[in-house]
C-alpha cells in the first residue's frame, strides 16, 4: 500500500467525537498524543512492554503503541484525561493513588490507572496477589509498586466506578 494514502478515522475519545485522516502507519499512541493533543497517554518503549501507553479501547485495557490509529475506526476510547469528573474531582482510583503515594515521577501512572479501572470493575475485592498480578504488565521504575498496591487495596471494598464520562452517559 502507498504509504501516503490517507485513511479516514472516526472515533470517540473521552466522550468527544473526532474525525481525522491518518497515514496507515501512524501508531495509535502518536495519534492520541500528537493528532488529538491528549498527551496524558505516555510512551515508554513502543514495543508493548512498559504499559505506559495503556488506554481503554471499548472498555478493555490495550497498549496504544501496539495498534495503528487506522485499526480503531469507530471505537470508543478512554484515556487518562477522561477519568476525572468534568469539575476536576479525581476519579476514586486517582484519589487512592494520591493518598497511598502510588506515584512519583508519574510517567507510568496513566498506564497503571487504565490497566486497573477494568480490572477493578471485574474484581472489586482483589487480594494483594491478584493486584500484583494485574499490574505485572506495567513497569514503574520509581515506586517499587507498593504504593500502587496499597492504593488499589484501599479501594477493594468500594470498587472503582467507571470513568466520569462513561458514568454520565
Amino acid at each position: 500500500m502507498d504509504d501516503s494514502a490517507l485513511i479516514d478515522v472516526a472515533l470517540t475519545v473521552n466522550g468527544t467525537h473526532y474525525q481525522r485522516q491518518v497515514e496507515s502507519r501512524l501508531l495509535l499512541s502518536d495519534f492520541l498524543r500528537h493528532d488529538l493533543g491528549l498527551t496524558g497517554t505516555h510512551v515508554g518503549c513502543e514495543h508493548g512492554v512498559c504499559g505506559a501507553c495503556t488506554i481503554l479501547l471499548d472498555g478493555e485495557a490495550v497498549r496504544a503503541c501496539l495498534l495503528f490509529a487506522a485499526q480503531v475506526r469507530g471505537s470508543t476510547i478512554t484515556t487518562v484525561e477522561g477519568l476525572a469528573a468534568a469539575d476536576g474531582t479525581l476519579h476514586p482510583l486517582q484519589e487512592a493513588f494520591r493518598q497511598a503515594h502510588g506515584l512519583q515521577c508519574g510517567f507510568c501512572t496513566p498506564g497503571f490507572l487504565l490497566t486497573l479501572v477494568p480490572f477493578l470493575a471485574e474484581n472489586p475485592n482483589p487480594d494483594d496477589r491478584e493486584i500484583r498480578q494485574a499490574i505485572s504488565g506495567n513497569l514503574c521504575r520509581c515506586t517499587g509498586y507498593q504504593g500502587i498496591v496499597d492504593a488499589v487495596r484501599s479501594l477493594s471494598r468500594t470498587g472503582a466506578p467507571k470513568p466520569a464520562h462513561e458514568a454520565e452517559t
Binding site: 491528549l38 498527551t39 496524558g40 497517554t41 484515556t79 487518562v80 484525561e81 477519568l83 476525572a84 476536576g88 479525581l90 486517582q94 493513588f97 494520591r98 506515584l103 515521577c105 508519574g106 501512572t109 496513566p110 490507572l113
Partner: peptide, 9 residues
C-alpha cells in the same frame, strides 16, 4: 503535584 500527574495535565 499529584493531581496534575494523575489527570494527564
Amino acid at each position: 503535584e499529584d493531581p496534575r500527574l494523575l489527570t494527564g495535565d
